[in-house]
Design a protein around this nucleic acid. Sequence first.
DNA 1: TAGAATTTTCAGAAATTTCTGAAGCTTTAG
DNA 2: CTAAAGCTTCAGAAATTTCTGAAAATTCTA
Lengths: 185, 185
Amino acid sequence: MKLSDSSQALVLHFGEMGSRWGFNRTVGQILALLTIHPEPLNADHLAEALHVSRGNVSMGLKELQAWRLIERQHQPGDRKEYFTPSGSIWDMARIVFEERRKRELDPTLSLLRQQLLSASEDSGADYTQAKMQEIYDLLEQLNTFANSLHDMEPERLKKLMSMGAGVSKVLNFGSKKKSSPSSAS
Amino acid sequence: MKLSDSSQALVLHFGEMGSRWGFNRTVGQILALLTIHPEPLNADHLAEALHVSRGNVSMGLKELQAWRLIERQHQPGDRKEYFTPSGSIWDMARIVFEERRKRELDPTLSLLRQQLLSASEDSGADYTQAKMQEIYDLLEQLNTFANSLHDMEPERLKKLMSMGAGVSKVLNFGSKKKSSPSSAS
DNA sequence: TAGAATTTTCAGAAATTTCTGAAGCTTTAG
DNA sequence: CTAAAGCTTCAGAAATTTCTGAAAATTCTA
């Protein structure tokens, strides 16, 4: 398990970025290596290539399986477990995106909802209540948007993303003068 | 500086979420408190309300100013520095979003660009090169999309977000029947 | 079923991040 | 200019996260 300079660099980089993307160094490195390696790898390969302990690899693989980012395979005539990414790069991005939405928005939405419901009791603290409502509204909108991206079929999503700033133009069609009376439901 | 139960809960929560949003506990708490408090606060207020040291508050304020999330003010007849959020909740969200795009996408794009350019030298490692290209393409598309969101005027952005899944419908206009035969580029 | 191969677990070690508090710096009033 | 008020810095302490490695558990072969 010797990595090319280029692969080595990518793997190390994914380790560093890991924490920003929601996992730890080893998990980032394992994911990177499995992704760019043509063949499935087993835990010993990974431990050797990444210079980390066997136990650490085991924990990392467990976490990546929990995220559904990788899956187990078996090679005929080998008792060891081998791993590969469970989908395309695109699939991975969706999974990470969704997981992060859950971790970064849901808990706060849930807290704010609670706070705002039980607010009627407190009479004062007007300003604070209003701000909390503002934060809630914003996060809920973000959340809805994130969900709608997540639910889109890949093709449509790709199209939307590649339109980039062009989306802005298309949106003018939707608005025109005629504001649909449906509004807030 | 006594906080209501509700404010207290929100501040603590923002402290916990802080690390997921890109800053540490104290920074999260300071931001939350300044946001929901009707009046500007000074460093002593913050240290007392959050039960953290004066030095920690100073560092937190410095960081929030670097992010341009808060700004200094002076109260007439008081030598202390007071702080308030520097914009609306919406403005804050945009700043945090943009800062995270920079931290989470730019470094990887930059590394991959470099790797892919200097790839001609290495002859082998075909699969790996192809995967790196895939990752690069995806991240660049994400990046472009994020930028176009960031550059949109708030009104248009709000409209886009509130359309949610509806965006999908609007996009059909752009595709019609004419399926471009380009496929994988 | 025995036992060898492989994987998982988890207590404590190592590394990293965050926080404190006192020293020192800057600003302002007098 | 002096001194008090206020702010910042940063070395080391505390807290948190990550990693190791040996023991325990599981799986497979014969």
